[in-house]
Each structure stands twice: as C-alpha cells, then as structure tokens.
C-alpha cells in the first residue's frame, strides 16, 4: 500500500480539492439533518406550525400527510387497518425513498445519525478496538423479530424502544427519560461495537434498505481506474462492504454501488482526492474500466485500517 495511507483521512482530498469540496456532502448532510429536525421544531419552539407531528407521522402545511411506512407495516401485521390518510402518507414516503435510496433516510434525515457519527468520531479519537461486529444479515433478523413481536402482541412493537422516535419525539413533545435510549446507542457504538447500531442492528435502517433496493440515485466509482489505494473511502464509509464490489470490480462489473446498505451519504465522494466517486443513477452506463491489475496488492487485507 502507498505511504499515503499513513496520512490522516481526507488530508489529501483537502489538499487537492480544497476544504469545501472535501467536506461538502458531510456539511450538506448535517444541514439536511438540522433542517428536517428544525422543521418539526418550528412549531413547538417558535409557534410556526408548518409541520406538525414527528417522523412517525406528520402533516405539512395542513395538506401533506407523511407516515413512516415501517411503523405502518408494524401496525398492519398487528392487524390494524389504518385510515386512508396514513396509507397515503406512507405511500408518499415509500415512493420517495424507493427512488432516492431507502437509507437516505438514515444518513440525511434520521436524528440518531449525528449521535452514532459522534460516537464513531470519539471512538476513532480514543483509538478503541472495533469490538463486537455482528454479521451483516443481523439487521434483517432484528427486522423479522420486530414484525413477529408486532404480530404476536398486536402492537407496534419497535416503537416501545426505537431510539429514533425516542429522540425525535422527545425533542418535539418532551423527553422524559427517553434520553437514556439515545445514550445507550451512543455508548453501544462507542465501546461495544464500532458502527454497531446503524450499521448492523437497527431494523428501521434494514427496512429502508429493503425499500430502496432498486433506487435510482446511486454512488458510482466511475473513475475507479484512478484509485490510488489511499483507503480513505473505506475509512469514512459507515457500510464499507458496499464499496468493494464497485471499486475493486473487473471491467465487466458495474462501478455503481448497488448494495441496499449504502446510505448515499456521499462521504466517499468527499474524501477521494482523485474524485473516483460521484452521484449518478443506477442506469448510468458510462464505461468504467477497472484499475490496472494489482494482484499482489488486492490480496492484502483491504479493510484493515478502515473504520
């Protein structure tokens, strides 16, 4: 591997592209997270009731109903057939995320994302071991478990513990002791399992991932031939297994990251100095020749330094 891997993550990109271009999607993402949370807080904090409700269900400008499809699905398996308002709301949300990527919810909207990102930042600063790393399919097991419990108990089961609703509803309607759930997730990601919650366990993310399985908007390693093995994309990617097939693929393999686990956060686009990655559609057929053969290097443990 090149000596560039020794540089701090993103240094090279800042040097080559400037600070803004090396951070734009991160900044935009934080702005989006603050924006969506802010919309909900305008009412309770400033009396401007553009948006009422919370992420589970909301009403915007008194006309646009939005409903979390995962919550609605749990209600359905718990054998409650909802009113049309909730169904329309869930369809709107479902279609949007199916087009732009289900896990866009995770990285651009979900209020727990800054919490786990903060945990990961501190985790790195403290140089902690990655800890327990559940299998990749674990989140789908959790998703199945939630649906089974919903069906058996006749309740919307995940909402009893969902840290996303706990935090979001807590900020908007009153926190109580809901902050303990948020703290638990933070500590879990900090000391128990690196990228553990959002990356391995959260059934909401699993659901949205499935929802966006065929999403249009995708990141593509279109200039993968220019990759210089600095490993920065692996270091910043919260779901780093999604990069490998696209970046390390052969000529005939698509350079588009098609894994539903990819949350379209765009951080890989930021930190790549040679601009290998870019946002595109899944139908993009721009030819993307593979990197020059580096058999010996490919055998090296690729993700050893990756976060």
């Amino acid at each position: 591997m090149s000596e560039k891997t020794a540089l701090p993550v993103g240094q090279e990109a800042i040097r080559d592209k400037g600070w803004w271009m090396a951070h734009r999607f991160l900044i935009l993402r934080r702005v989006a997270q603050a924006f969506f949370l802010g919309l909900f807080l305008l009412g309770p904090w400033f009396g401007i009731w553009w948006v009422k409700g919370n992420l589970a269900g909301s009403l915007t400008f008194d006309v646009l109903p939005l409903t979390d499809p995962f919550v609605l699905v749990q209600g359905l398996v718990a054998q409650h057939w909802p009113e049309m308002t909730a169904i329309i709301g869930a369809l709107i949300v479902g279609v949007v995320y199916a087009l732009i990527g289900g896990r866009v919810y995770c990285s651009w909207v979900c209020p727990i994302n800054p919490v786990t990102d903060a945990a990961h930042w501190l985790h790195d600063r403290l140089g902690l071991a990655k800890g327990w790393q559940p299998k990749r399919g674990t989140r789908y097991w959790v998703l199945g478990m939630v649906l089974v419990v919903s069906a058996l108990t006749g309740t919307i089961a995940w909402e009893f513990v969902n840290p996303i609703s706990m935090l979001h509803r807590g900020l908007i309607f009153g926190m109580g002791f809901a902050w303990t759930f948020v703290l638990a997730v933070f500590l879990f990601d900090l000391v128990v399992s690196r990228r553990g919650w959002c990356g391995h366990l959260c059934p909401v993310g699993a659901f949205y991932g499935l929802l966006g399985h065929g999403s249009i908007l995708r990141v593509s390693a279109v200039k993968r031939s220019e990759c210089d093995d600095c490993m920065d994309c692996f270091a910043v990617c919260p779901e780093m297994h999604v990069i490998t097939p696209a970046l390390r693929g052969a000529d005939e393999d698509t350079p588009i990251i098609l894994s539903p686990d990819c949350s379209n956060c765009g951080r890989c686009v930021d930190v790549c100095a040679p601009d290998v990655f870019k946002f595109t559609t899944r139908f993009d057929t721009t030819p993307a020749p593979a990197r020059a053969v580096r058999r010996n290097k490919q055998r090296q443990p690729e993700a050893s330094r990756a976060a």
């Binding site: 718990a78 006749g154 909402e159």
Partner: peptide
C-alpha cells in the same frame, strides 16, 4: 387495539 393503531405522531395533541 389502540397500541396497534396509534403511531404516536402527536397530531391529536397538536
């Protein structure tokens, strides 16, 4: 039945 139906959005509160 309520716990299967209520999504806890708080629109009734608002």
């Amino acid at each position: 039945d309520f716990l299967a139906a209520c999504i806890r959005c708080g629109l009734c509160v608002r």
